[in-house]
Each structure stands twice: as C-alpha cells, then as structure tokens.
C-alpha cells in the first residue's frame, strides 16, 4: 500500500498534514498505538525539516505486513556534514523555525530514535533523502 504527499517549503500552516494523514491510515489498519506514535513522530520531524529547510519535497509511505517504509525526499540546500547534522543540539534553523517551536537540533536524532533504521543521503545544492524503516513483525 503506497501513499504520496507533497510538502511545501516554508509553509508552516501545512506542516504535519502528511504525518496526520498517515496516522489516520495506520489507525485504520489497527497498527499498535505505540508503533504508530514512533512512526508519526519520526515522519512529522522529517516533514518539519522539509518545511524548515527545503524548497519543496515529497513523502512516500509504503506499508506492508512486515514493515512501514518512508522516504522523505527534498529539493533544497542539502546537508554538507551529515555527522554534524545528526549531533544533538546542532541546528541551522532560521529564527522563524525557532519561533514555531523547532530548530533545537533534535529532529534528526529523534527520527533515528523512533525508527528501526534511518538512512540519510544528501547533495549540497540539490537536496536530501531520508529513508526510515519501522518493523511491524513481532
């Protein structure tokens, strides 16, 4: 089962629409609420990252009986130093992003904490791809 969502860079009014929609789908599929929370928190952090840093992005969510796979792909400035970006407390967020309650350098580490696997690749000047996998099998 595959779902796709477009994300607008800079539009905080819509940030979270994709995560909200995925949460409703996972609830309908009777996924364990604890798993739902981990998935949607990680996805929401990723969605906020696209809104905060990129020009636009796309979220693809693929659900099967064994796992939930999410790919968040954006067109944006990219991340020059991924290890630094994964460091708790490191942030390049603007004042506007901070006013929204984000930009404390916690997003990527929190995504990693909430997913069973996180793969991040980025090209400076082109964009970033984050892939999150959450296992469903017991």
């Amino acid at each position: 089962m595959e779902f796709n969502y477009e994300v607008e860079g800079g539009n905080f009014a819509k940030a979270g629409n994709a995560a909200s929609s995925v949460k409703k789908v996972l609830k309908q599929l009777n996924v364990d609420p604890k798993v739902i929370k981990r998935v949607v928190v990680a996805l929401y952090e990723g969605e906020v990252n696209v809104v905060a840093h990129a020009y636009k992005g796309n979220i693809m969510v693929d659900i099967d009986t064994a796992r939930i796979f999410i790919r968040i792909q954006d067109e944006g400035p990219g991340i020059p130093d991924i290890d630094l970006a994964m460091t708790v407390g490191y942030s390049t967020a603007s004042a506007m992003v901070r006013e929204m309650g984000f930009g404390a350098g916690m997003g990527l580490p929190n995504m990693k904490r909430n997913a069973d696997s996180l793969k991040l690749s980025s090209k400076v000047g082109e964009g970033t791809i984050v892939e999150l996998t959450t296992n469903l099998s017991k």
Binding site: F12, A13, G16, A19, S20, V40
Partner: peptide, 9 residues
Amino acid sequence: MQVVRTAEM
C-alpha cells in the same frame, strides 16, 4: 498550529 500538530503526533 504546530503545537496542536505536535500534540497530535
């Protein structure tokens, strides 16, 4: 709105 979205997630 992000406070409500955060609470939702």
